[in-house]
Design a protein around this nucleic acid. Structure first.
Lengths: 140, 140
DNA sequence: TGTTAGATTGTAACTATTACATTATAGTTA
DNA sequence: TAACTATAATGTAATAGTTACAATCTAACA
């Protein structure tokens, strides 16, 4: 728990039980949860939690770069990750599972002398996952 | 106009003035418009148009691969393109302009022997565009 | 020309998110 | 330790984008 306190203090944010709960949840559940999933999970042990608090804190933590927010291309809800190394997502069109792809790709090198200054990249890959390939030969 | 009729017929979709208007608009305005932008534009000449019709038709045309739908990572609205070659988007964090990036990147080659079967890719690049770099030296 | 499956329309519902006002509390100071 | 104050938490209401639904209409075919 001390590491979350340290993290918040570093960014001059007040230490509140709600913030610690959210950080702890994101750190222990690296499944790109949505705001509602975070809310529902924490509410079990802290029923007084308000969804607005989840949104407020997510917001302030994203702005302070403590957590990352992103969105899958075909989804209408934002998703969140405790600080991660750069990675991409693979979404299976059969079972909808989300896998992290950790293959490092030379995106930025390509843009060394490009007319625009490229700073960030977001990407999703889509297809059929390992398991669905195994279970359903028509996908091969 | 005949090419839109042909396109719809090929997919066994009924030819309606609304569908032709939407296709024509998307073909002539390759600026990734949102559903509302499509609706507002066509309404000028066809005031009876319903927004539900825009959504319905967008939906059926996406499903038939006549148009493409996608979403910018930090936006909550879907955007649409008349059939395009594969390309990526660059969004300027200063002026919010959207540029198409037509540099072809060897994404799929990397995944030839990957455990998952990669079929589609969506990506956004973000940074500072050519013009904003020129106009504001602090971005360099 | 009549029939009918499918399309269009308008309204209402829904989901994710944000705005806002009130109450509470973390962290500082006396 | 108590009091103070800036910030945070809460609940409600509002908003934006989209979808569901029922009634009406029309394109395409016999």
């Amino acid at each position: 728990m001390q590491k979350y306190v340290k993290e918040l203090k570093y960014h001059k944010l007040k230490i509140t039980p709600q913030r610690l709960d959210i950080l702890k949840f994101l750190d222990n559940n690296r499944v790109h949860p949505s705001a509602d999933e975070i809310y529902q999970a924490i509410k079990i042990d802290s029923p007084a939690l308000s969804k607005t608090t989840v949104y407020n804190n997510i917001d302030v933590m994203v702005k302070n770069n403590i957590i990352k927010s992103f969105r899958f291309m075909d989804s209408n809800e934002l998703r969140f990750d405790y600080k991660t190394t750069e990675h991409y997502h693979f979404i299976c069109r059969e079972c909808k599972s989300i896998y992290d792809i950790d293959i490092s790709l030379p995106y930025f090198e390509k843009f060394k002398n490009y007319k625009h200054k490229v700073e960030e990249f977001y990407g999703d890959y889509k297809g059929v996952c390992e398991n669905c390939l195994k279970n359903n030969s028509k996908n091969k």
